[in-house]
Amino acid sequence: MDERRFDEIERLARRYGAALVLYARSWFDSPDDIVQDALLELLRQSSWPVRPIAWLYGAIRYRALHRRRERDRRRRREAVVAHREEPWFVPDPSASLDAARATELLVELDPDLRETVVARIWGGLSYAEIGELTGVEASTAQRRFVSAIALLRGRIDSSMSRGRTEERKVR
């Protein structure tokens, strides 16, 4: 095993680990395991991918969807529905968006749009890579990104104006 792979895995985990977890979390509620598995699978690849980060997104997507299907089957079988609401982001007063609110907004997005935003903003994938990941043209990925941002902006603006109205009523 080439030791450089360990260094590269470590670098990827350090730089993109949280972003990968976020992406996995948007699909499945046990994201750490999925990311860990993807990293290990990357380590075992016989040929190292040209863009490991894009490869990892693909591996995570495949695994997350697979596990979600398994989980859904299990839940149907057990008739148990457990929903965990965990923050997707680190609370940060200096951030322009509240972490919990941002999580809500992303959860409300259509999965295609959410996936595109997450891969683009936190994963740094190009639109060509996102298109390859999601099985669409790069231009479609671009349009999805634009739509997603428009929706997010609209929802934030409307909630802010609602807040201002309620504030005036209180006064």
Binding site: E10, A13, L39, V90, A99, V146, I149
Partner: peptide, 29 residues
């Protein structure tokens, strides 16, 4: 697209994804 990118960079990118993975994983590797 350029406007969306700018908005995303100003608002969304300021958020740090929550995860214990980076240190833990890098540490383990």
């Amino acid at each position: 697209l350029a406007q969306a990118e700018a908005w995303g960079a100003a608002h969304l990118a300021t958020l740090t994804p929550a995860s214990e993975l980076p240190n833990d994983s890098a540490w383990a590797y």
